[in-house]
Write a protein that binds this DNA or RNA. Structure first.
Lengths: 110, 110
DNA sequence: ATAGTTTATCGTTTTTTTACGATAACGAAT
DNA sequence: ATTCGTTATCGTAAAAAAACGATAAACTAT
């Protein structure tokens, strides 16, 4: 990938194209959408529960969770021997706003 | 990728995880975010203009546009010798709503 | 200490994505 | 008919993503 990070952004443009793209990419896979939906539905659960609802190996699910964490959409905390995951709702709300701003972006030149 | 398409969806869950993931994936690259922002800013422009604002080869930009078209976020129409691109605002609005619904999804069991 | 449960990481393979140059296709204008 | 400007497609190479099994790490409980 060429270095888009070093290009000056347009005046009215938000700087965080990278972060926005990262979050979009994190949601750009059906398994990860599923994971998010489940977490939103049950509020919080351990990794094993997610494994049980998806037709994927444990290691694969763990990788998906890692990506979601990297994008900031999910956070996990140790809970006894297991790890409890939940959606970072602030980040998700931020994402929703960014998408809203983005998709309402118009031409306000002059 | 395993066949997530054949898994029964949870009761309250929207069916179009695939479509939502596809649109997210389309926006999951900084170059494509840039393209969308530019199109939103200038309303409509030819492909060559987009090439000129990105540090990418013409063929690469063409591929990115192809992805955005495949996701339905962008449409292009022949205009003389060139092709004029613009954002499909209805689709983008739909996407925004899907994200809004998604990110507000809560636990309403019982 | 040992055994059991849970999850992350490693190593690997396959597939997809990203990027490029070169070429083809298409329309406009000479 | 030929040339020019514009964009898509082809072929290819390099990088990243997706998936798995096996193993390691960490914490509980016996």
């Amino acid at each position: 990938m060429a270095d888009l990070k070093n290009i000056p952004s347009a005046p009215g443009t938000r700087q965080n194209d990278e972060a926005l793209a990262l979050m979009c990419k994190a949601l750009g896979h059906p398994a990860r959408i599923r994971i998010m939906r489940h977490l939103l539905a049950v509020d919080r659960c351990i990794c094993g529960e997610i494994v049980s609802i998806l037709p994927l190996a444990q290691s694969t699910v763990s990788q998906h969770l890692k990506l979601l964490k990297k994008a900031g959409l999910v956070k996990g905390e140790v809970e006894g021997p297991a790890i409890c995951y939940c959606v970072d709702k602030e980040r998700l709300a931020l994402f929703r706003e960014q998408i809203a701003d983005f998709s309402r972006q118009q031409d306000f030149r002059g």
